[in-house]
Design a protein around this nucleic acid. Structure first.
Length: 487
RNA sequence: GGCGGGUUGGCGGAGAGGUUACGCAGCGGAUUGCAAAUCCGUGAAGACCGGUUCGAUUCCGGUACCCGCCUCCA
């Protein structure tokens, strides 16, 4: 049992993680608004918290961890897309078109995040499934004096919660002083935020004590975390951009609605993603989705590896060079370890992860383990019997530990090696090249050997020739169709 | 303008007040029909200016630059 330490945004310190109940560790992570394909930035918290989820499952048993990640399916951008389809002549109701859009987006999201080796959370609630819970929570907040109705809206009374700003380190007065936001005239205080807002006939809405309307953005996470994890739970995560105002508002709502509970005990925020040193944005033209990368032939496992190279609390820069390095390393590992069954994760890897999710350190530990594996294999193959018997553990044992450790990071997952071309049988080409080479050795005319070698290289095959013989391996850009042309 | 985070060798990226991080790339060598792969070896850093200290890349202060949030763009 290792002590997991996590940097708690609330205290700004690295703390020992002690779950409320070690038989039921709860984690809530803010999920996507399902209006379009997930972009690469959306994928970072998914990988970060998937890695934490895997670590928690390893430490507390898989069925003792409950991971909740929501789908926000109430949103103006979703409405806009549905209205666009309606305007284009679709006969279905607006609600049906909204459902259609969110359904297809969720399916994309699942496919893309699956490709990154992310486990599905235990529960993936949709906001629209918890409207009743949100209304009940809002009613409670009004009854307790923490919210008020004004001009068809319900607003949270920020001044009624003394600790407002504790998470993000802001004071209400400072924020008002520096505010650049236009303040709605019906607000008691500029910082008050919307819990419920009215919907007109062109927008989706639900009946409520305040008329037909829809929830504000923040209340869904408060309602869903309460329903699914209770008034006190262990970990709440999300991107740093959510720290304020989203998480601050969640805290205010939840703590005022359920003063008996402590809400989330450990707040984790991942830093943002950049692309080639700049913020990813549509205006800079460096905006792309996870699907874009997958479509370019960059495997999800490579994307994940690149993410893991950077600590989650540092800004992460996506570069083509990193992807290249990650792919090279993964190919090396896959070649040796494909098909190896996992045993138990390596202590060094687990300790790295337990130290505030030091994924970079964990990858370094894996490199070290790989080096040790090669050394042991050499001794096993060429060493004296005395050397062999003195080995602390066999190569097979190290391999099992390596794979278990990699899988703790979401790498080298079972069935996840198709992209390296492991399924293609290169033996016929190996035999042909070997035969040509043996003939060339005698004739000293290597032109036929070089021709075949070039063709194989062009098909993305790595050609290795040594005294021991010829070895062919699928390499970067491996293309089985080009190979067939050589038949 | 307010608040927060950061700045390490060509690139990525750590720990530690004094000892080689490490990986990739580079360079030298071994090996190879040639390459590739592999192995051995190797140079290279701590944004800038001060301070504390016997000694700082590591602690403190300032400057510059970068990033994020403050705007329902993760």
């Amino acid at each position: 049992m290792v002590t997991i330490r996590l940097t708690n945004s609330m205290t700004r310190r690295k703390e020992d993680f002690q779950p409320i109940n070690r038989d039921r560790v709860g984690m809530y992570v803010c999920g996507p608004t399902v209006y379009d394909r997930a972009h690469l930035g959306n994928a970072r918290p998914v990988v970060v918290f998937d890695t934490l989820y895997r670590l928690l499952r390893n430490e507390y048993q898989p069925d003792h961890v409950k991971y909740v990640r929501n789908f926000t399916d109430v949103d103006d951008k979703i409405n806009a897309e549905a209205q666009r389809r309606k305007a284009a002549g679709r006969p279905e109701s607006l609600e049906a078109l909204i459902r259609e859009r969110t359904e297809e987006t969720i399916a994309w999201y699942h496919a893309d995040m699956d490709a990154l080796g992310a486990l599905r959370p235990d529960v993936e609630p949709r906001a629209t499934e918890f409207i009743g819970a949100m209304i009940a929570m809002i009613e409670g907040l009004i009854a307790a004096g923490h919210a008020y109705e004004a001009a068809g809206h319900v607003l949270f009374r920020v001044r009624s919660y003394r600790n407002y700003g504790a998470l993000s380190g802001r004071s209400v007065d400072d924020m008002i002083a520096g505010a650049r936001v236009e303040v709605a005239p019906f607000k008691e205080d500029p910082m008050d935020f919307v819990l419920w807002k009215p919907s007109d006939a062109d927008l989706p809405g639900w009946d409520s004590p305040w008329g037909r309307g829809r929830p504000g953005w923040h209340i869904e996470c408060s309602a869903m975390s309460y329903e699914l994890l209770g008034d006190s739970f262990d970990i709440h995560g999300g991107g740093l951009d959510l720290q304020f105002p989203h998480h601050e508002n969640e805290i205010a709502q939840s703590c005022c609605a359920h003063p008996q509970g402590g809400f989330a005990r450990y707040w984790l925020h991942n830093e943002m993603l950049q692309v080639e040193g700049k913020k990813m944005s549509k205006s800079l033209g460096n905006f792309f989705t996870v699907r874009d990368l997958l479509g370019q032939g960059i495997p999800g496992e490579v994307i994940r590896f690149v993410f893991l190279m950077t600590h989650y609390r540092s800004p992460m820069d996506w570069t083509a060079e990193k992807a290249r390095q990650a792919e090279a390393t993964l190919r090396k590992w896959h070649r040796v370890l494909t098909g190896v069954a996992p045993t138990r994760p390596d202590d060094v890897v687990v300790h790295a992860l337990a130290d505030d999710l030091n994924t970079h350190g964990a990858l370094q530990a894996l490199r070290g383990l790989y080096d040790r594996l090669e050394d042991v294999r050499k001794v096993e193959a060429y060493g004296h019997p005395n050397d062999r018997s003195s080995l602390a553990e066999s190569g097979d044992a190290i391999e099992g530990r390596f794979v278990a450790s990699a899988q703790l990071l979401g790498l080298l997952l079972a069935g996840g090696d198709a992209w390296i071309g492991a399924g293609v049988d290169l033996a016929p080409y190996t035999a042909r090249l070997t035969a040509l080479r043996e003939a060339a050795m005698a004739s000293k005319d290597f032109s036929a050997v070089d021709a075949l070698k070039s063709a194989l290289t062009a098909a993305g095959v790595e050609v290795r020739m040594s005294k021991a013989g010829v070895e062919l391996l699928p390499g970067p850009g491996f293309d089985a169709s080009k190979l067939e042309a050589l038949q």
